[in-house]
Amino acid sequence: MAIATRKGNFGVQKTRKKRNMAVLRPNRSRSGDVFIWFMLAVFGFFFAFPLIFAINNAFKPLNELFLFPPRLFVINPTLNNLQDLFIIMSRSWVTFSRYVFNTVFITAAGTIGHLLVASMGAYAVSKYEFPGSKFFFNLVIITLMFSGFVTAIPNFLVLAGLGWIDTYWAVIIPHFAFPMGFFLMKQFIDTVPQSLIESAKIDGAKEWLIYSRIVLPLIKPAMLTGMIFSVQALWNNPQANLIYTEQLKTLPFALSQIVGSPHTPNIARAGVGAAVTLVMMVVPITLFIVAQSNILKTMANSGIKE
């Protein structure tokens, strides 16, 4: 198809290739370069240090965790902490695999549903102007600013009314309406050329066909980005106020039970706590590394016009 050859040819500009800035921009001072490198080094250390510390802690044996003065890097790395974590979890009343399943299921179902529902809506709002479309999109922009706290109380009442409290749906279905994903997808679909859609129409394609065969394959970067943000939101959220049954609870909640809070720290499990921190941050960070270039492609269209 003619469309296939044009794929990837639109809107988003390619990231700049590596080249010598000094030649290209003669207005750069050497002292400015030094200043920038210095700032990046200092703040890079500030940003990286706690996470390096967290990763190292997960591999420290107990005697190193309470060493005075404490050391950043591990001397004798051990897998005991991770092992202990799995032992504790396998002995728990609800098995570890159940918590993992709950989290993965909620994250996957919420994300897939969100991507489908939001991309359909975003397509309609982006490519057509119909009564209410502009208004709706402006509403979505405003709600980007809402934190869950503002809507938590009425949401609970609605979910209770629907009888969804204490089921997976209480977490999954409201997440379909996640505004960030809708916003980014709409902005990205804006860059799909109108002519592609019109030519498909002339060939007799109906809306559904245009959406599923032309638009969807073209917005993969935005889908991937929506996926990352959605997974982040679901993966880290303990959802403790919506699900009570132990068998339905998620991994972050279960893990937070092991570690104890910072003010009632479980000293004997300090090592396991460090392992928990590592386990929880591995998934979102890995996903980000894999999808980084796609995310940046999508964010290139994130501008809001006032």
Partner: peptide, 26 residues
């Protein structure tokens, strides 16, 4: 544009019920 409303409907309904209406109710 009635097809387009069908496209937007699933998101719009969920968005209204779980994001917009709660603010009003609040």
């Amino acid at each position: 544009h009635k097809t387009l409303y069908l496209f937007l409907a699933p998101y719009a309904i969920l968005f209204t019920v779980f994001v917009v209406a709660p603010v009003g109710v609040s």
